[in-house]
Design a protein around this nucleic acid. Structure first.
Length: 296
DNA sequence: CGGATCGGCAT
DNA sequence: ATGCCGATCCG
């Protein structure tokens, strides 16, 4: 029947988009859209495509049916995110911990040539997982400017790193350093040593160990460990308090829910927001502190 | 048995 | 309404 299959200009080289019109049955006249990877694998839904691509690509603004990036959808996503953020007081805290990924350029993974000293260089096609894909040098710099905000959009106090930790690479700020280390802790369970080779400081572009964050090798003193233990202890204490306050707030709420005298949307809710914000901040700090405890 | 095609649930 | 995927059909 009507079967169009062409190189789609919006897609990278080798990807095909196909639209098939149903010709019989109750759904006659409707159409199905399929994509074919360069290796010929067929995709019949967006989730399937997303699973295949892994977390390396953001398909949230990709319209599967038309095969284009819809700006409108992008905006809607933004709005939705803000909406969720504002409403976290009503639901669970946002537990999405995936790192930001590139949202521009090619939507799909391209075959990558891996250059090694070995005589038989191979071309990897359709890598299964994004994990072993080469990462951009100094990719951590993309994390610049990302900060934690509480519900009132107040900047959450930034964390102080021990003096022993120093960044490497062009224009590496303390902020980049924190992001880099946090990401490393988040994405891998492997030990974090920083850049062990001293040559990195002379020529980071060449000597950077890409499995480690943009951070110089560091020494850990007993004093560091002691401070860290204290920090974790304090944060746990704060968390305990926040949890207690949260519980009390809910008990109180339950005790006065007969005929509603109070109206929604007044200070009562704002108080709740505040508590939840504190709770979330405490959780965040705890997570970071626990992470740092692992480094040190 | 693998791929094409349609049904039908879930959202 | 329609996206998604299981069921079914067909070579």
């Amino acid at each position: 029947m009507e079967r169009k299959r062409w190189e789609c200009s919006a897609l990278p080289q080798g990807w095909k988009r196909e639209e098939v019109t149903r010709k019989s049955g109750l759904s006659a006249g409707k159409s199905d859209v399929y994509y074919y990877s360069p290796s010929g694998k067929k995709f019949r839904s967006k989730p399937q495509l997303a699973r295949y691509l892994g977390n390396s690509m953001d398909l949230s603004s990709f319209d599967f049916r038309t095969g284009k990036m819809l700006m409108s959808k992008l905006n809607k996503n933004r709005q939705r995110l803000r909406y969720d953020a504002n409403n976290q007081a009503k639901g669970k805290p946002d537990l999405n911990t995936s790192l930001p990924v590139r949202q521009t350029a090619s939507i799909f993974k391209q075959p990558v040539t891996k250059v090694t000293n070995h005589p038989s260089n191979k071309v990897k096609t359709d890598p299964q997982k994004a994990i072993d894909q080469p990462r951009q040098l100094f990719w951590e710099k993309k994390l610049n400017g990302l900060n934690a905000f509480d519900i009132a959009e107040e900047l959450v106090k930034t964390m102080e790193l021990p003096k022993g930790l120093q960044g490497v690479g062009p224009g590496c700020t303390d902020e980049t350093l924190l992001s880099a280390i946090a990401s490393a802790l988040h994405t891998s369970t492997a030990p974090i040593t920083g850049q062990l080779s001293a040559a990195v400081e002379k020529n980071p572009g060449v000597w950077l160990n890409t499995t480690q964050p943009l951070c110089k090798a560091f020494m850990v003193t007993d004093e560091d460990i002691r401070k860290q233990e204290e920090l974790v202890y304090n944060v746990r204490k704060k968390l305990e308090e926040a949890l207690m306050a949260d519980m009390l707030a809910h008990v109180e709420e339950a005790s006065c829910d007969g005929d509603a005298v109070k109206e929604e949307g007044d200070e009562t809710e704002d108080m709740e927001d505040c508590d939840t914000a504190r709770l979330q901040r405490a959780l965040l700090l705890l997570a970071l502190a626990a992470g740092m405890a692992q480094v040190l």
